[in-house]
């Protein structure tokens, strides 16, 4: 059925480290349990039986930011909440991605008011914006697939968390050699 059927006998798989890492990262994007407002309900619906986000390897919602890769900003970010959102993002370990779910997180949406942050991208970098108020679960899945697409095309040493001069310095030439 899968790749294992092709591997009868002694075989060797050749790929680049880039592809291997991106492949494994893209299929295990663990979101952070982080609901703010209405969109959180659609996020919960996405993770449950009807829409089943586990088809994409993302069913493991972690309550702790330390264990998650994806921050789904699901809902209105008020100015009082903004420091907490920033802190949750900062606590997440690299590599990490952000989905601004819904109109409020993307641009303030219908709440053009004194109390609401007009788009979460004012405090943290956003990878995918989802329109809708709230977006349908299908839209969230489409956003997740966009994230996966983005991860698969990433170059390891061009990620924002890549810090040249440390251990990578010696490893990067080896990657080039294998390729």
């Amino acid at each position: 059925m899968g790749i294992e059927n092709q591997l009868t006998g002694d075989n060797i798989l050749v790929t680049s480290l880039n592809k291997l890492v991106n492949w494994s990262r893209s299929n295990s994007v663990w979101p952070c349990t982080f609901g703010l407002a209405c969109c959180a309900l659609e996020m919960i619906a996405t993770s449950l039986a009807s829409f089943d986000i586990s088809r994409f390897g993302s069913e493991v919602f972690r309550p702790s930011p330390r264990q998650s890769d994806l921050l789904i900003v699901a809902g209105t970010v008020s100015k009082k909440m903004a420091p907490m959102v920033k802190r949750v993002y900062d606590q997440m370990a690299d590599p990490k991605w952000v989905i601004a779910m819904g109109a409020c997180a993307s641009c303030g949406g219908t709440f053009q008011s004194y109390a609401v942050l007009q788009g979460v991208d004012q405090i943290i970098p956003v990878d995918v914006y989802l329109p809708g108020c709230p977006p349908r679960p299908e839209a969230l899945l489409a956003g997740l697939m966009k994230i996966q697409e983005k991860i698969r095309t990433e170059n390891l040493n061009q990620r924002p968390d890549f810090k040249p001069g440390e251990r990578y310095e010696t490893q990067v030439p080896k990657v080039e050699l294998i390729r």
């Binding site: 703010l36 407002a37 809902g75 209105t76 008020s78 009082k80 909440m81 907490m84 219908t110 709440f111 053009q112 008011s113 004194y114 109390a115 609401v116």
Partner: peptide
């Protein structure tokens, strides 16, 4: 107050019909 969105104040700037989504 972490989800204060100013709905009551926003309703003052919208007409009666427009405030239903709020």
């Amino acid at each position: 107050g972490y989800l204060h969105r100013g709905i009551e104040k926003l309703a003052e700037s919208k007409n009666y019909q427009q405030a239903i989504p709020l």
